[in-house]
Every structure is written in C-alpha cells, then in structure tokens.
Nucleic acid binder design. Structure first.
Lengths: 230, 230
DNA sequence: ATAATAGTGTCTGTCAGACAATATGAT
DNA sequence: ATCATATTGTCTGACAGACACTATTAT
C-alpha cells in the first residue's frame, strides 16, 4: 500500500490462477487427471488442469474452477473442495503468482475427456514430473483424501452413485492406502448409517449378486474413523 | 490505495490481500486481535489485521502476513498457518479480490500493540460486526483451532513458553470449548510425551507450587485426541 | 457344488470417562 | 490447617481388530 499511484511494473500485476487435483478410481487404482501444457512456460510438461481466473465471468475462484472442470471434462455439479493457496515470485517464471488449488473427487464415468495424448488419467503411484509446484499441490491433495477420507464419505465420491459394499471397501482401501478388515468395515458402515439400499442387485457378474447402495447425503463426516484407528 | 493499477481497467486487476486471525488467551478468555479500518471501505469498522501483498518485497503470502504481523504487533517468528482463501467480486466494493487468510496463535505477552482505541484484543464470545467477510474468516479460524486443537499442541501455543499443567488444561478447555477431566487429561499428556519439565516451579502464587513445563517441539499432532473423544 | 457376497458371534486388548484416594508443599 | 497441585488407582463401558462361522444365491 506504499506505492499508491506508481506506474505498474510487470511484477506488480499478479497472475491469479486456479488449479485442481481431479481424483478418480480406475482399475482399482487412484488416478489423477493431468494435461500436457500447450504453451510456455513448461510447454509439453504434465500439469494439473487449471487456468486463469476470469474476473468478468467468474463469481469467485470456486466458480472459476468449476468452469475449468466443465471445459476440460464436461462434468459439472461435482464435489469440489478448496485445498490451499500457493503463491510467490518463484513458482511461475512469468511473475508473481497466486494459485488457489482445489480437489475434485468423482467417478470415472463422469469424466468425458477428449481423446488426446495431451490429457490423461495417470496412476498416482507412478507420476511423471509436473510443471510449476504442481507436485506439491498433488501431494497435498492426496494427503487430504487420505486424512479426511478416514472419517468421512470422501472415498465414496470416487464411485458411481450406486455401488456395492465390496466396491466401497476397495475405494476406502485405495484412498487410505491400507487394507481393512471386512467385518470391522461393514460393522462400522452399518453403525454410521450413511448408506441406503437401492433395492437393486448388481447383476450379471459371477456368483451371489451384491446389493447396491447409495449415499444418503453427498458428503458427510463422522466422529469416528472408517479406516484403521491408529 | 484504491487506485492501484491506474492504466488498467478496475475489473482487470485483482486486489490481493492477506488477512490474519490472531488468537491469544487473556483472563481465561480466547481473544482475537482486531483493528478499526482507517480508510474506506468500511472506514471505522472492526476488521482482521491484514494488508496488501507487496510483490516487490514479499516472497509469498506467508512472508506478507509475517510482515503485517511484525508491523502491527512487533512479533516475529510466530506460529502461523494458512486457513483458506476467500475471493470474488462481491466481497470488496473496490473490485474483484482475493484474500489469503492465515491464523496465528501466540501468548499474549508476545503481542506489543500500540496503545490505541483502533486496535484491540476482543473476546471471541462477544464480537462486534466485522468488515468484508471477516466474520466468516474468523469463524473458520475458530473452527480450525477447535478441530485441530483436539489432536495437536495448537492450544499450547496460546501460552508462554513455560506453563503449568493446570494452565495447559485451561488453554485446551478454552480452545476446545469444553471442560476436561483432570486425571484423564494428565494421563494423556503423560502418554503423548510432548512436554518436558523445565525443573522450575511457579513461585509466588498461593499454595503448592506448580511444576513448569515446555513443549519439546513447536507444533505436533497426535493420533489420538487430547480433548474429549466424541 | 462353487464361490462371491452378506452377516453374526466371540474374544481380547486398548482407551476413555468418571471418580475416589492420597501425597506434596508453600503459605 | 489449608488448599491448589500432583499422582495413582479402580471400575465400567465403548470400540477396534482379529478371526471363526453361518447364511444367501446366481451360475
């Protein structure tokens, strides 16, 4: 606030972007949506989806990230939460920048991505180098899923609206990075009362058909953990 | 300071600020540092301490908030953590704005605030109306202290470097907003092994002198809770 | 019959909360 | 003697984890 009225130097106009860690489940693996940067800086390098905030169009940064998601994946109405904000003069060669990072968790079927070698779902266990500080942002996103996932329905957002208990347990195991005991898991699921039966069964598969469930509410947190306690 | 970026259109230059929820303990009450706004907008209204990011001077928003804290309270090297980012076209009448909000937790003795009717520690139980969306930011800060305080040493940051177990329990009770059983609290404190005796006693007071303790590390989280479990 | 799914039961250990009891030590 | 501080112990209930066991049902 000291430099009132001074002419603007290049550094005095901040770059404001939003970036998003899009997580989903495919083939039993936790995957993240990445795209190759089409422009400098870091042209051709993998990066999190993101973009500039359009101040004339976006009501706030949440609206901006929803626009980005709509444009890049065709998906809207997704579960999105803010992660953190990354800033400074060194993270983007173009100048002083601020990136408000979000995390989106969704079933793979909701993702309609262009058939292109420049956008892809990548296994989080086998990540390429990422542009800017996106590796740190992604790490924070995975930590959030792991931490909050233990006492919330966040991992269930990785699944389609209807799912079996086995699929739900697998989603928690992948999100939390640990195997769970089936009987303990099911006892807790029953106790916490966050599911309702659809009445349908999963047909076509092999032996006994699994009942289908859906979440009563989109996101819910618990006072105890669905994962391993400690 | 309204007319930053003369040659550009008002809407095309975002306002980037940092704001901080400074919490401390006084007279057994949780207090927050507020200041009356000296300029428009919201002139004269209480607000969280904050300021513009100086891109030529601040390495990032954390550095910016540390500068603000140094300028307004004389304190440095404090425990500070990022809360969340608040943005949009409607929160500041001057235009589209982004505020990266932080929380600082410190002992009252570390605060050296100017003797002035325009800056004060205010009891969080009895808050005035606040400028912008600062009421929401403060609410989020208090929620963070309450939530994270249960399984971390965050409430201990409200105290001077050396403190008694009774003072520590009182800090947790204020931070978490609930009474705790002394024997349970002390058993957990012993189990978690995050304190060390200074060897000194609190002298001068009334009856039996209390032993003084200090934290082994500045901030530490636990796998179980020091507060009430659920 | 098979095998994936679903659900029950039991045992053990850990922890939390409540509360009683006692010791300590300056004033 | 008082009284805040400090410490130990006991009891109960809740829950977690491990694992055995039974039931269901399409193929």
């Amino acid at each position: 606030m000291e430099e009132i009225g001074q002419p603007l130097k290049k550094e005095s106009v901040p770059i404001i972007t939003v970036d998003v860690v899009v997580l989903t489940l495919d083939q039993g693996q936790l995957q993240v949506l990445l795209q190759r940067r089409p422009y400098a800086p870091f042209v051709g390098v993998w990066a999190l989806p993101g973009g500039f905030v359009h101040m004339d169009e976006d009501q706030d940064t949440l609206a901006a990230i929803q626009r980005v998601l709509r444009d890049k994946t065709g998906a809207s109405g997704l579960y999105v939460e803010q992660l953190a904000t990354y800033s400074g003069g060194n993270r983007d060669p173009r100048g002083w920048s601020v990136s408000v990072a979000y995390m989106a968790i969704l079933p793979k079927a909701d993702l309609h991505i262009a058939q292109s070698p420049d956008i892809a779902l990548v296994d989080t266990a086998n990540l390429p180098d990422l542009a800017f500080d996106h590796a740190a942002i992604l790490k924070d996103g995975l930590a959030r899923l792991r931490g909050k996932g233990a006492y919330s329905t966040l991992p269930a957002m990785l699944l389609p609206k209807e799912f079996t208990l086995s699929e739900l347990q697998a989603a928690y195991e992948v999100a939390l990075g640990e195997k769970l005991d089936t009987s303990v898991f099911r006892r807790k699921v029953a106790d916490f009362e966050f599911l309702e039966k659809t009445g349908e069964n999963r047909s076509g598969t092999s032996k006994r058909p699994a009942r289908l469930y859906r979440l009563k509410e989109t996101m819910q947190t618990f006072e105890r953990t669905l994962g391993r306690s400690f």
